[in-house]
């Protein structure tokens, strides 16, 4: 049996509750408190042309900024493919159109808000800005939207249809949307890490050019697996990549403080990784539909550093070398994702 062809994450950038567009969180992490924390936006006036930025909503600005930075770090102007994940898309525009529809009725509605309300607005904008006529899709599948996008990009690269993919995960949480997320029992609840926002872009390459951050060995996505089936699927993915559970140096997992959310992570750890240190990344990046993109971003940068920084704890002895990291996420107990990353 052949190993799945490895791919490489060349660069990864974020705008989140952490200091934007840098990796300061590895030495001085912020632990957002309360139930709601918006992203620490960079000064977009320094990053985007004013004429361009005026026409963009907040999420579009973030998507443009992290993507520009990720492409520059990969030494690329134009990717071969753009694959985006988003839970609810450009919420600000959707809300403005919906609010107008509900209060003013079906007259004199703004076409601009409607045009920017579709989920694929970000992918389209990124294509226009980079003049990328290649493959372009947007996945919107709850909290594994980004994971689906990364999976699709990996399949695309492995079949040889593209050499470099720009993969992103973007969600904004407006004050009204935060109310909705709380009412549906998803985010911003007492006892849970706060409801935050995420914009992450990374470049995925079929070749290890320009000192990659890490290797992407494989992904495994499953719908409603029983706990033992999930452990079995993850174990088999490790096996395909010539690894055993004991080879995993760090589990990056999506605990958020709610028992229903945390149980599957604990179950998988108990079955396969009883002694593996964990990084519960949502303490740093909060909860939203795209936060799994931050888990891959964080894991990639930790692998570049090769050790778990003391500031992040994780129950690992200081200086523990990182060679193999497994990132696990799930969306409402329905859709599960595991991503195996490795030092190149």
């Amino acid at each position: 049996m052949t190993l799945p062809a490895p791919l490489y994450i060349l660069s990864a950038e974020q705008i989140s509750p952490q200091r934007p567009l840098c990796q300061d969180w590895t030495c001085c992490p912020r632990y957002p408190g309360g139930t709601y924390c918006r992203s620490d936006d960079p000064d977009f006036r320094r990053l985007l042309r004013p004429a361009e930025a005026r026409r963009m909503g907040r999420l579009l600005k973030r998507a443009a900024a992290v993507s520009d930075r990720a492409l520059a770090a990969a030494g690329a102007d134009c990717p071969d493919a753009i694959v985006t994940g988003t839970g609810w898309g450009c919420v600000e525009s959707t809300e403005q159109f919906l609010q107008a529809l509900c209060t003013r009725g079906e007259h004199l509605l703004s076409p601009t808000h409607f045009m920017q309300s579709t989920h694929n607005t970000m992918s389209a904008l990124l294509a226009i800005r980079t003049h990328c006529h290649g493959y372009n899709v947007t996945f919107t599948h709850g909290a594994v939207s980004f994971d689906c996008a990364l999976h699709d990009a990996a399949l695309l690269l492995r079949e040889g249809s593209a050499g470099l993919a720009l993969v992103g995960g973007h969600d904004e949480v407006t004050p009204d949307y935060r109310v909705l997320l709380r009412r549906m029992g998803y985010a911003g609840l007492a006892g849970q890490c706060p409801c935050c926002e995420t914009s992450v872009a990374l470049t995925l390459s079929a070749t290890p050019r320009r000192a990659p951050l890490c290797r992407l060995d494989d992904l495994c996505l499953r719908h409603r697996p029983a706990p033992e089936e999930w452990a079995d699927a993850v174990g088999r993915m490790l096996g395909r990549c010539g690894k055993e559970p004991a080879d995993v140096d760090l589990l990056v997992c999506g605990h958020n403080g709610l028992p229903d959310n945390d149980r599957p992570y604990d179950g998988l750890a108990r079955r396969l990784f009883p002694h593996t240190p964990q990084l519960r990344y949502k303490r740093l990046f909060g909860e939203n539909f795209s936060v799994s993109a931050a888990s891959v971003y964080a894991a990639a940068h930790l692998l570049r550093r090769a050790t778990l920084p003391p500031a992040l704890g994780g129950g690992a002895p200081q200086g523990t070398p990182l060679r193999t990291v497994l990132v696990v996420n799930h969306s409402g107990g329905a859709d599960f994702s595991a991503i195996l990353l490795e030092r190149p």
């Binding site: 947007t138 499953r222 969306s331 859709d335």
Partner: peptide, 29 residues
């Protein structure tokens, strides 16, 4: 509210018939 998003739509369509091994949603207008 929980049924608003496209991912929830996909999973509800699927789950009516049993348990698919993998589900995903695309939204490109």
């Amino acid at each position: 509210i929980a049924l608003h998003d496209v991912g929830a739509t996909t999973d509800r369509v699927a789950d009516h018939f049993g348990r698919f091994g993998y589900t995903a949603s695309l939204s490109t207008a």
